[in-house]
Amino acid sequence: MSELKIGFGGGCHWCTEAVFQALIGVTEVEQGWIASEGQFGSYSEAVMVTFDSESISLKTLIEIHLLTHASTSAHSLRGKYRSAVYYKDLEQKSAVEHAFSEAKVALKEKPITMILPMVEFKKNEEEFLNYYQSRPDAPFCQTYISPKLDMLRKRFSKELN
């Protein structure tokens, strides 16, 4: 098994957590906030995804990420919900850039998603972890998360648990 870890930010971390928890080959999803550097040094909602690269490709993970949040919209909440893929070192940056260039063709518009270095990750409080799994019938989950999971079932059925 070849385990790798990557960060994803875009929309609400509860939504992003549920999306990646549904995938075969993802062995852990940590929900919280990621800080990068420079103008992106503030924390933004994100998840850290540990995955088996022999079971699911980085390209597939990035494609799913781009399709399950507003990756083409520069809306006013981008400070809190930065659209990004976070890498840990230069070797991983190169792999992310390559996979991103292949994955973005799934979109109809140009993504605003950035590829950024991960400087720090801060895990969310225990009570908010596994948000969808612990309360799938909650109004927030039904309104925002369930439709994303429905799209995954239709488009990525081979990749789902």
Rank of each mutant, 00 (worst) to 15 (best):
M1H: 05
M1D: 04
E3H: 06
I6P: 02
G7N: 06
G10F: 06
G10R: 10
G11E: 08
C12T: 07
W14V: 01
C15K: 04
T16N: 01
T16C: 00
E17Y: 01
A18T: 06
F20T: 01
Q21R: 14
Q21I: 02
L23S: 00
I24P: 02
G25R: 08
T27W: 03
V29S: 00
Q31Y: 00
Q31P: 00
G32D: 07
W33R: 03
I34H: 02
A35T: 09
S36C: 07
E37S: 07
E37A: 10
Q39L: 09
G41H: 03
Y43D: 06
A46I: 05
T50R: 08
F51N: 05
S53T: 10
S53C: 11
E54D: 15
S55P: 04
S55F: 06
S55Q: 14
S57M: 07
L58F: 13
I62V: 14
I62R: 01
E63M: 09
E63F: 01
E63A: 14
H65N: 13
L66I: 06
T68W: 04
T68I: 11
T68Q: 13
H69E: 05
A70E: 09
A70K: 13
A70Y: 03
T72E: 10
S73E: 12
A74G: 07
L77K: 10
L77Q: 03
R78N: 07
R78M: 14
G79K: 12
G79N: 15
K80Y: 08
Y81E: 10
Y86V: 05
Y86I: 08
D89P: 10
L90P: 06
S94R: 12
A95E: 15
V96Y: 14
E97V: 13
E97A: 11
H98S: 11
A99P: 10
F100C: 05
F100K: 04
E102V: 03
A103R: 12
A103S: 06
K104M: 15
K104E: 14
K104C: 13
A106W: 02
A106Q: 04
E109L: 14
E109D: 14
P111C: 04
I112M: 00
I112A: 03
T113L: 05
M114H: 13
M114C: 09
I115T: 14
I115Q: 11
I115M: 09
L116T: 09
P117L: 11
M118F: 06
V119S: 12
E120R: 13
K123V: 07
E125S: 12
E125I: 12
E126L: 11
L129V: 03
L129A: 01
N130L: 13
N130S: 07
Y131Q: 01
Y132D: 02
Q133Y: 02
Q133E: 15
P136S: 05
A138N: 11
A138R: 09
P139R: 04
F140N: 09
T143R: 13
P147R: 05
K148F: 10
L149V: 11
L149Y: 12
D150H: 08
M151Y: 15
S157K: 08
S157A: 12
E159C: 11
E159D: 12
E159W: 01
L160S: 13
